[in-house]
């Protein structure tokens, strides 16, 4: 049980961006999250090997070995099979703050890890600068 649940929420990278201050503007906080499912075929092979002592376990293991040949270089988290899932980030930011006056971005690359699968997450917290007259909601 201990090893099944270990490291459920793992932080890979944190980046704090500059915080701007503008007179007569307020900072309206927002949060964005995009994610993709990661799959670890190596882990899957190990589990299927330990569960079945027949050929099925070995063939899953062989598939995992072949796939690992195509996965090289530094990486964070488990492999995802949609490499463009983070591309919509800039568009999503502008949706949150149509004026484009964005500041104080904190980018967190994190992972929710479970056996075999994981949630590969990119989370962004930031502030949209809005004129005091156009203030809606909570001021930060």
């Amino acid at each position: 049980m201990l090893f099944l649940f270990q490291g459920c929420a793992i932080v890979h990278h944190v980046q704090v961006g500059e915080v701007r201050h503008k007179k007569d503007f307020v900072r309206m906080p927002f949060q964005l999250k995009i994610s993709e499912t990661g799959i670890d075929f190596g882990e899957m092979a190990n589990i299927s090997k330990s569960l079945s002592k027949n050929k099925a376990g070995n063939s899953v293991s062989s598939i995992a070995e072949i796939i690992s040949l195509f996965q090289t270089g530094p990486r964070t988290g488990k492999p995802v099979y949609n490499e463009s899932y983070a591309d919509s980030l800039a568009t999503a930011l502008y949706k949150e703050c149509p004026s484009g006056d964005i500041t104080g971005l904190v980018l967190v690359r994190e992972m929710n890890s479970y056996p075999v699968v994981s949630g590969e997450i990119i989370k962004i917290n930031g502030y949209c600068l809005q004129r005091k007259t156009a203030k809606k909601g909570k001021k930060s």
Binding site: Q6, A9, V11, V16, V19, G104, E110, N125
Partner: peptide, 27 residues
């Protein structure tokens, strides 16, 4: 024991920076 279920504590870092520089820009 490696048990960690939330990374929301990271969100506080910006607020802590802003609190120290309420009328300025942090660069």
């Amino acid at each position: 024991f490696f048990f960690n279920f939330s990374n929301d504590y990271v969100n506080e870092i910006n607020e802590k920076l802003i609190a120290q520089c309420p009328n300025g820009s942090v660069k």
